[in-house]
Amino acid sequence: MFNAKDDTILNCLVGMYLDVHFVDCCLKVQFQQEYWNRSADNIETIYKFVIPKTCTIGDFYAEVGGRKITGVVQEKGQAQDTYDDALATGQTSYLALQDEDASFNSYTISIGNLPPGQTTKVYISFLSVALNKDGNYVFYLPPELLPDVPTSGCCKIEMSEGVEHVYSTVGNISKEMDRVQWNLVPSNQPIVVSVITKKYSQPKAVLEYDEKTKSKALMITSTPVWQDLNNDLIESQVEVIFVVDRSGSMRGSRISQTKQALNILLHALPPLSRFNIIGFGSSQDWLFEKSQQFCEENIEIAHENIKNTNADLGGTDLVSPLRRIFSQPPDVDYPRIILVLTDGSVNDRPGTINEVRRNQEQCRLYALGISSSVDTALVKGMCEAGRGEAAFVI
């Protein structure tokens, strides 16, 4: 945030309240942010607001001086002109613009002409589908979306399937398991709420009626249950390339978690597969010049490599090893899978995601984010570009 008059950084954000609402597999999340102008002049505050790309902005309004100012949707240029005109006439005005970088959902929020001593509250809500794994619905808010101010909030839970268990990394869970309440969440800690339901595999329908528009919307959800894997799938031939972050930021528990994950993943490979392990930082460390057959001898070589793996390769250049991988044409008989293990602190996030997107026909890319402060925009952006999925070790 800055003062548009003299570019002085001002700490105007003084508090935030987070309102999360589970309704079956749907999520509505509202950020309530309070700003206070401590200076003696009218100011303009500008900040970035990032949400997962799978989310949609649902509402944007503000409260100032007892008035509610509701946002309206306009074409980008028109919205900027409306905001500038309001500033020119001395009115307090609000603007939310979606940034052009398509790698993630980033918005620039502007509050103009906030009077001295004035307090204003900004409300932004978004809609999404909860992550679902075998009836375990998850809300995950990474720490980079939590500003360094007092943050409190609650999560309301409504599940037609019935709730069997609720887990949360912060706050207190009600006895009825229909609410989680939290206060003063540390800014470096993610918020995770996991709701396990009783009858997740049963198809269900939810009908919603809008009194204002007299319209109805029907949502039907069906979750498949996989009993057995097909033997052909188990025996399939694939090429799996593990791309491992060995930069300085991976020191300590992060590199230890990565080595444990590598050993587990290595033994989960199909017997007829090929594999390789590539460490990256400022430089690269390739186990093999090109992927080798899964066999006892190569597995022993890989285990020795993992044992001696350290966070000793300096910076975090992920683009270069990806380019080298993509320069090697894949074998059509061995579909290529790339698995990136990283804390996400790379030098060039947009360039990395674009490199994956340009070569998405070569492979599927999956990623495992390590640590609670992982760059989720990078990890999810790569997986979306690479037609894969992301997972996180918190």
Rank of each mutant, 00 (worst) to 15 (best):
E300T: 13
R324G: 01
D348M: 03
R358T: 15
S320A: 10
L313W: 02
T342M: 09
Y334Q: 05
A311P: 01
S345E: 14
E304G: 09
I338R: 01
R324Y: 04
V356S: 02
L318S: 05
D331K: 10
R323S: 08
S327N: 06
T342E: 06
L341Q: 08
Q293Y: 13
A302C: 07
E304C: 08
T316R: 03
G314H: 06
E297L: 11
D343I: 11
T309W: 10
E355W: 02
I306H: 11
I337E: 00
R323Y: 02
P330R: 10
S345C: 11
T309P: 00
V332N: 07
G314C: 09
C295K: 14
E304K: 12
I306L: 11
T316I: 05
R357Y: 14
I338G: 04
N354G: 07
S320W: 00
E355P: 02
P329T: 13
N354W: 12
R349Q: 14
I338H: 06
H303F: 15
S345R: 15
K307H: 12
I337S: 00
Q328N: 10
A311H: 03
N298V: 09
I301P: 00
I337L: 04
I337R: 05
Q293A: 15
Y334N: 04
V319P: 00
P330W: 05
R357E: 11
I325A: 03
I299E: 13
N347P: 00
I325C: 06
N347R: 11
D312Q: 01
D333H: 08
R323T: 08
L318Q: 03
R323Q: 14
I325T: 05
I353V: 13
P335E: 03
L313G: 03
V319F: 00
N298H: 13
R358C: 15
D312G: 03
D343N: 08
D317N: 14
R357S: 13
I337N: 00
N354S: 13
R324W: 00
P350S: 07
L339C: 15
T316F: 02
I337G: 00
R358L: 15
V319C: 04
V332M: 09
L339Y: 06
E304H: 14
L318A: 04
T316Q: 06
N308P: 00
N305T: 12
P329G: 12
R357V: 05
D348S: 09
R324H: 10
Y334S: 04
N310R: 14
L313K: 11
L341D: 10
T309F: 10
N310L: 11
R336H: 02
G351R: 02
E296P: 01
G344A: 09
N310Q: 12
N347D: 15
T316H: 04
D333P: 00
L318E: 07
I301M: 13
T352V: 06
I353C: 03
R358Q: 15
F294E: 15
E296R: 14
T309G: 03
P335I: 03
V346W: 05
R323I: 07
D333I: 04
G314L: 10
R358G: 14
N305S: 10
D343C: 05
T352W: 01
V340K: 04
L318T: 04
V340Q: 07
Q293V: 15
R324V: 07
L339M: 13
Q293F: 13
T352C: 10
N310E: 13
N347C: 10
P321F: 03
I325D: 02
S327C: 01
